[in-house]
Design a binder for these strands. Structure first.
Lengths: 237, 237
DNA sequence: AGCCGCGATATGTTATCACAGTTCCAGCCC
DNA sequence: GGGCTGGAACTGTGATAACATATCGCGGCT
């Protein structure tokens, strides 16, 4: 690797590293993942490699990689025809995932409560305020709310310092991502957000008191109430 | 779909379906997965696509698919150099995975205890007897013991009827597969097997009594004792 | 003798192409 | 007119080749 090829802005040698150190496959993966997480694809939608490749301006290979990876993470589903689609969430599967989330994310917040630093706590509090502010505007942006909510939760989970657990939780969120946003985007969401705000506040307080059980209880309330809302929507088969 | 292309043995039309309905990528994936699960590759081993492709008699593409999938499941690890290797298990990571296993597999056996059928119980009991018999031979085959042990556990987990949970547990076993067998193959394993036998018996009894908490306790004993054995081996960095 | 630079080798990445199975629609026969 | 058949278009799979980068070793310079 030479110094030749000045590729970054700014002066100084230390400022020109990390030029496009990302493969196209990784970029496609990230794009598709964000698409799924944000619920901008609906359960049941079929994806074709060539179409995606054309839309993203690449060849089939990076798209193949990304789809293979997402399918391995259960974020996409391959039918016996070899075609891939966004998985359709059944009621049973949704409830099963919720049960697992209560265990795993419950353990994460309880662990986080024991060892969270004040700095992390401050960042989490800032996200909570951001979430509250966005909610108090006249017309909250659903995409922003979902992003802030995700950051709020995962900052707490990261504070548990359990990387393997964090990975599994991310996989679960990826699985429920489509249905989550699919409903939150359409239905009247005022009520569910109010209670989410309430649970988030309780969770933040419990973390501040380093009260693990209380934190777990608050998170459970958040997960259960949000899940009940989805279940009441009746859009699950 | 035409009738042309007689490809299966046996007479009658209905007997010729499902000829080679498996892609090469799936076969390579399964082979590599078994290799990892059986611990026939050691943590830190580097894998190259071309070498594997040559060894398996295919091109790079199916190998690429399989590796991408295994990397997504954390069964393989991609270094910043883009080279892939069998992940190196640290002590902290091993203990974290064990903690997660205690939660998830504990919940699985507790659920299974509530709804397990007599038929499933009989199959599980048969596996336990097979495990005992293999252990009582003068020279037990490590590979057979590991296979039977895995079947025993997963038959129980399947009885819980939680497919998403089962998938996650399989991922965890895939992660600890290498170190598990790596040690069990070399060190004196007589003691650990004895206690495994004991815990399996307790677990089976508890399932027969439909006693969920007892089943969870027996499984916890199995996981903790096996984990302690690995940790005492001192081969974890 | 030690260190730097350069090139050879190895390896992952991407593109392009050929092939097989599937889907879908038009046209034809009954 | 309806159902069946035929083919055309579509789509995933596998192979091969071109390319970029990383790794390692050799040779020359200091």
């Amino acid at each position: 690797m030479g110094i030749s090829g000045v590729g970054a802005s700014g002066t100084g040698i230390g400022a020109l590293d990390k030029v496009d150190r990302e493969t196209m496959g990784a970029r496609v993966y990230r794009d598709l993942r964000n698409l799924i997480m944000a619920g901008q694809v609906s359960p049941g939608d079929r994806l074709t490699i060539r179409t995606l490749a054309a839309a993203l301006g690449t060849s089939m290979m990076p798209v193949r990689d990304a789809i293979t990876r997402l399918a391995a993470e259960q974020a996409l589903e391959v039918l016996p025809n070899r075609t891939v689609r966004v998985p359709i969430m059944t009621r049973a599967r949704f409830e099963e995932v919720r049960t697992i989330r209560l265990m795993l994310e419950g353990h994460a917040v309880e662990t986080a409560a024991a060892i969270v630093t004040d700095e992390a706590l401050a960042r989490i509090g800032a996200l909570h305020e951001e979430f509250t502010a966005e909610h108090n505007t006249g017309d909250p942006d659903p995409a922003a709310l979902i992003r802030i909510n995700k950051d709020f939760h995962f900052r707490i989970y990261e504070a548990a310092a359990m990387p393997a657990l964090l990975q599994i939780i991310e996989g679960l969120w990826l699985q429920i991502g489509p249905v989550l946003n699919f409903d939150l985007r359409s239905k009247s969401k005022r009520l569910s957000e109010r209670v989410a705000l309430h649970h988030h506040g309780d969770l933040l307080d419990a973390l501040g008191r380093r009260d693990g059980p209380a934190a777990r209880a608050a998170l459970a309330g958040d997960i259960v109430s949000a899940g009940d809302f989805i279940l009441r929507c009746g859009s699950l088969v």
